[in-house]
Each structure stands twice: as C-alpha cells, then as structure tokens.
C-alpha cells in the first residue's frame, strides 16, 4: 500500500506533496511522487527540474518517509496515468493539488483534477495552496 501524489512545480503541487508526506508519515506507508508531462512539445512548465525533485525527495527523507519517484510523459490525459499507477501500486490514497480557478476558467479549460476526483476508485485528497 502506498500513497500516490501528482507533482508539478507549482504552489498547488508543492502543497500536495507536503500533505502527501504528512499522510505517508501518519499511515506509515511509502510515497510515490509522480511527475508526468504532456507529450507534444519540447518544453512544458509541468516538467519538474532536477532541483525541484531533489528537494521533494529530501523533504520526504527528513520526515522519515520512504519516497520513490516516477517521471515520464503521457500522450493524452494525465488522469489515466495516475489512476493506472494508483491501481498498480495499490494506493491507499491519491493526493492532488488544486488550483484556484474562476468559474469561467474551469469551463473553458476543463480540469484534470475534476476528472481524477470523479473517476478514481481510490480515496482522493485534494489540496489547495495556502493563500
């Protein structure tokens, strides 16, 4: 059993990782940090740089949590990927970061977070960044 957290180098993503580390400590479970970018362009802001990932892993270590990193790319939708990983690693919890969005923003761009919330079989913890 482990905790799967979707990480992007944004305030929401950082908040999600923090919460995931706390949860992993509480449940005494391993942590799986997933950073996956959308295929199709050479550069994406959702790709985490090495320093970010190092920092995240260090944080987990300090908290006494065993963390593993999964990096890669997905072709169409991150939802499928994170749910597949949750299935594969028998996750007890999925943690995702939520951006604050206006109603119009949600309508036009859609929301991966919304899809994960609605489709996941496992419990989902949605975390917002501090104001």
């Amino acid at each position: 059993m482990s905790i799967v957290v979707g990480y992007v180098p944004t305030p929401a993503g950082e908040a999600a990782v923090q919460a995931a580390i706390v949860e992993a400590g509480l449940r005494d479970e391993d942590l799986l940090v997933v950073n996956s970018a959308r295929e199709g362009s050479l550069v994406e802001s959702t790709v985490a740089a090495d320093e970010d990932l190092d920092r995240v892993l260090a944080q987990a270590e300090r908290a006494g949590v065993r963390a593993e990193l999964v990096r890669g790319t997905h072709r169409d939708d991150f939802t499928d990927e994170i749910l597949d990983l949750a299935e594969k690693h028998d996750a007890s919890l999925i943690v995702i970061g939520l951006r604050r969005r206006s109603t119009v923003g949600k309508f036009i761009m859609g929301s991966v977070a919304q899809r994960i919330l609605l489709q996941a079989e496992h419990p989902v913890l949605a975390v917002k960044p501090p104001r």
Binding site: E39, S41, L42, E44
Partner: peptide, 9 residues
C-alpha cells in the same frame, strides 16, 4: 513517437 519533454531551463 514519444519524445521526452523538458522543464523550461
């Protein structure tokens, strides 16, 4: 085909 995506340097 699948091509690696990079962080903005």
């Amino acid at each position: 085909r699948h091509r690696a995506v990079h962080a903005p340097g």
